[in-house]
Design a protein around this nucleic acid. Sequence first.
DNA 1: CATGAATGAGCATTCATTCAT
DNA 2: TATGAATGAATGCTCATTCAT
Lengths: 218, 218, 218, 218
Amino acid sequence: MRKDKPPSTRRERLQERSRQRRESQKQELRQAILDAAGELFLAHGYTGFSLRQVAEHIGYAPGTIYLYFEDKDDLLFHVADEGFRRFSHAQQQAAAERTHDEPLKRIRALAEAYVDFGLENPAYYRLMFIERPDLMFRSHEPQARAWLSALDDYQEAFKTAAGAVLGESSDLLALSDLWWAALHGIVALANSMPFLYDPPRVKRMLNTALIRFFDQPR
Amino acid sequence: MRKDKPPSTRRERLQERSRQRRESQKQELRQAILDAAGELFLAHGYTGFSLRQVAEHIGYAPGTIYLYFEDKDDLLFHVADEGFRRFSHAQQQAAAERTHDEPLKRIRALAEAYVDFGLENPAYYRLMFIERPDLMFRSHEPQARAWLSALDDYQEAFKTAAGAVLGESSDLLALSDLWWAALHGIVALANSMPFLYDPPRVKRMLNTALIRFFDQPR
Amino acid sequence: MRKDKPPSTRRERLQERSRQRRESQKQELRQAILDAAGELFLAHGYTGFSLRQVAEHIGYAPGTIYLYFEDKDDLLFHVADEGFRRFSHAQQQAAAERTHDEPLKRIRALAEAYVDFGLENPAYYRLMFIERPDLMFRSHEPQARAWLSALDDYQEAFKTAAGAVLGESSDLLALSDLWWAALHGIVALANSMPFLYDPPRVKRMLNTALIRFFDQPR
Amino acid sequence: MRKDKPPSTRRERLQERSRQRRESQKQELRQAILDAAGELFLAHGYTGFSLRQVAEHIGYAPGTIYLYFEDKDDLLFHVADEGFRRFSHAQQQAAAERTHDEPLKRIRALAEAYVDFGLENPAYYRLMFIERPDLMFRSHEPQARAWLSALDDYQEAFKTAAGAVLGESSDLLALSDLWWAALHGIVALANSMPFLYDPPRVKRMLNTALIRFFDQPR
DNA sequence: CATGAATGAGCATTCATTCAT
DNA sequence: TATGAATGAATGCTCATTCAT
């Protein structure tokens, strides 16, 4: 029966403000846990990632984490969700960037955003697409399916572009699968062997891919 | 290559024989450990792989493993070495298959062998190229560099093929990098999301890649 | 029984009324906690019974319980008290049922009520008479002694019945002790091994006991 | 292929002796764990009984217990088994005591042994027959069924004694059930409220029970 | 060479309890 | 009065590793 009316008495206002402060503090800690988790995940990998360490990292007792997340898997789950959101956001951003819907430019924008995301968020990328792809399917966030729907996106783009630059008779599904695999391969190499594949080299790979697949030098 | 002078007295000869026998027994057990480790690694993955289980699997005490390997990481290290050997062998097999050195056929053979290896040895592939690529560099086995040298191979092949099918002015390093990334991407997808990418789909991706990269009249 | 002078001014009267309201609310919540505790104790037994669950069950914060009870043991203590009240009530009900004071009928009524209580309130029975009989003595509730006084009751009944059905020279204390032990044994068996001693079997045991002890077939 | 022949060389003899010593040490520790477990079970009850405490009690690390028992339940399981063995032994001892098979004397001996066992092994009794009667059924030890088969024993005894001292038409199953319940009740009371039911009082109860059930001319 | 008993540190998780607000 | 965030200790359990024998 909590009233939705804005609080009016002084006391109520104070309480409300206090509640909000606490709420925001709570959100902050929650975020701190998520951040620490992501960080540690990147540093020690899936195996060497423990709730204790997360707790210690943020200076709280181990039990505290259970006030914000159900269990270890739930935490990982939400780390992934955050990643899904960021990934989805980055892709949408890229798609929106070019108002015209020239398919090739759209594809280039998406691809660049994809690779950039991978380079800038190695822990997320690794968790979401390498280590625990199952989370993609277990998540309730619609954005978790961004990766899968991106594949559809590409397929569509390929279809549109088919007549123009691609061979007419191509197996479009296989082609977008391959395109996808190439993108994933580029990022995965950069993720697993960053010492070997530095950003410039990665960028050049992407560029070559765009040329090779769409005859589209920058 | 330590080479003590050959033993001469009867006693010395006996000792030597016993030493050899023990040596070979020692090697046998060492191999048994490696085999069991590989098997368990395959079965339970990087996370669920414990020395105790390895020991139990071969019917020896946990401590025994430390007589053959420094620690868990060292064992993993040598498991990877076995993987490197197998990988290297598979690639060489493929290269040797076609006596003629028609570059495109050679490339196709190598690529198919690569993907097949990835599909057939998911645990090794994951350990060597996804989870612990550092082992590739720490290993003393020359085969550990097979992956890296394969890249050179491709580069060579691309160079040879350049005039014929590829654009003359192409950035060949970037192109073979990309080719490499595509292969890795294909296998990595299959490895991380086998439920999504079943063998036929994977094979079709590879085929499309071969067409896209080599068989297409420009 | 603290009794401050009755309030007289309007303000005091208002305060008093508010105090009473709060008092009754307080009692309500207290009772709610007790109820929830009893319920959970019944459901999960002595082991699986936690303050957090009680709190969650009534929709309050865990800390709140500490406003009404000193600690977990204190809560359990008062849960037991509720059990004592129910037990005492059941026994009194049974005693009152027959207005005539024919001792044998009285004994039968009491015994049946006893066993019924045990069957219907296994968690209470277990807490009060098996797991934590110490609470019986620590309680300030007079009813907590119902179990003990029931023993006296029986002793009295035996004494009265002595001449009639029991051997004259019997050791009456030992006899009522035994009778008591038989009753407890019947209920304890039913409590610990309900899969073995189902209600009909239990009832038959009780009946046989009545016959054996008082020559009183139903 | 271990040879069953007795060892002959000096070295083998030494090894054998060492093995035996270690074996017996192992058994000792195992027994020490069992003992400590029983002790702690008695002291802190089913709830407050932890592997850590057992470990600390015997001065070993917690993990050590897992070298001797699979898990907590397995330990409890074997504690119970030890109890079953002792209980069964005590009963058999009692049965054997009187060579003549005069049924009443036999019953008295069994009953006395039963109560004595309960008084002398309160922790075992509580674990086996009050707290975890399920272990009785899960155990592989045949003795675990001693309790159940004792019931059969009594039934048999009652049947034999029927003509002599019991009413001809009695419901024998119910009667032995009741007898059983009385015994259990006596011990359970002593177990739960030792401060109330001291050994002499308990003995008197048993005695009265024997008289009431068997020695009374009808 | 091999054992295998034992360790100690680590893990995820739960809980009774406290206390500033 | 009630909150609810946080604690710290405890629990069962697993593991890599050591070492006397």
